[in-house]
Design a protein around this nucleic acid. Structure first.
Lengths: 191, 191
DNA sequence: GAATGCATGTAAATCGTTACATGATTAG
DNA sequence: CTAATCATGTAACGATTTACATGCATTC
């Protein structure tokens, strides 16, 4: 067996299992929509596709196309779809959380009060924008009333989670900022 | 100037700015509580501390202690605290989201229905546990009514965010699982 | 006296990003 | 005819993790 599979490999397998694609298309979908919940750059795409082919989970079909290397369309095999399903239903690893905003918040006591408030308000705006974007996707997919358990329904669920996350974060930013501003007002009045 | 600073460097600066610590203590706090929002392993701690000292943001004091290297206590300088504050109030980079659970959910259409439901319910339980843990921290810090803008107040805000995140995720897992089970029931009845 | 915890540090391996290199096709 | 897009791939660099290596102090 070759190197063991990384999360990116399964992300790519999931894409070609939904629809046969070229590596280029995989890269594009990896940015959007996959990038919303699993962002990774394109560097590993072609090696990963080769690996999936070696594992027998994906097949390639070379067709004439642009560029010096032609064009290759990748599709998932039945074994690939089964492997994808097994992986998807297996418990996710404790995701290493990497939340720079929260980390920064934990050191905000060392910052200038106004600068902190400005940062938090800007973040609140950012997440409100993100929330709207997710809500749009939810409306779009939801309009079709996709069958429960279908691929589109899965996409709807992930967008719903995105919207919930963005809303929660927006509200949190606003609350933290409000406390900071109200405290400034009180101190000024008291002084 | 040496290599430019990484997020880990600021995380460590934030720790020694709160309280003078040894590298070992920094490692421990990096797991808990920092690990809740910025998990990273200990490999880079000592190089990072050296870097912070070189930058003039942290000072070392060697004291006799266990081990072949003795013991070194690191503290932040005033310049270090100012740098920390500037960093904390600067807008966070678009964090590349890495949410394995959501990624898996997007491929759940390929999975066995029961296995999917089991996974989601297990995740819901996990996040309910996490939520309780965060709620306990919130109660603990909140009991002191820390001054707005203080270091402890910042810790309270991060714990509140953790609790909100865990609650949102728990509810989402439950909803997705419920839809999946109810659909199975309907199909069975109809059949 | 054995295990655990404190304490420092390094090295190798892996993982991921960015930049590079090439070139056909299509739209303006 | 020029720019953008489609398309494949590699190489170098940087960041992270894991494993290693050492040894004092304390508790059981």
């Amino acid at each position: 067996m070759p190197r063991n599979l990384k999360t990116l490999d399964y992300a790519i397998l999931g894409l070609v299992a939904r629809a046969p694609s070229t590596g280029y298309e995989v890269s594009a979908r990896l940015r959007n929509p996959v990038g919303y919940y699993w962002a990774e750059s394109h560097g590993g795409v072609y090696p990963s596709l080769r690996l999936l082919v070696d594992a027998g989970w994906v097949t390639v079909r070379s067709v004439p196309g642009p560029g010096p290397h032609g064009k290759k369309v990748y599709s998932a095999t039945r074994a690939g779809r089964r492997a994808l399903g097994r992986w998807a239903a297996s418990p996710p690893a404790d995701a290493p959380p990497r939340d720079e905003l929260v980390l920064k918040t934990s050191s905000l006591w060392a910052a200038d009060r106004d600068a902190a408030v400005r940062m938090l308000e800007a973040e609140a705006d950012r997440w409100e924008k993100a929330r709207k974007e997710y809500a749009g996707i939810v409306r779009e997919i939801g309009a079709d009333e996709p069958e429960v358990g279908s691929a589109r329904w899965c996409g709807l669920q992930t967008a719903l989670r995105g919207a919930g996350f963005a809303r929660g974060r927006r509200d949190w930013c606003r609350q933290v900022a409000r406390q900071l501003t109200e405290d400034v007002t009180n101190s000024t009045r008291r002084a």
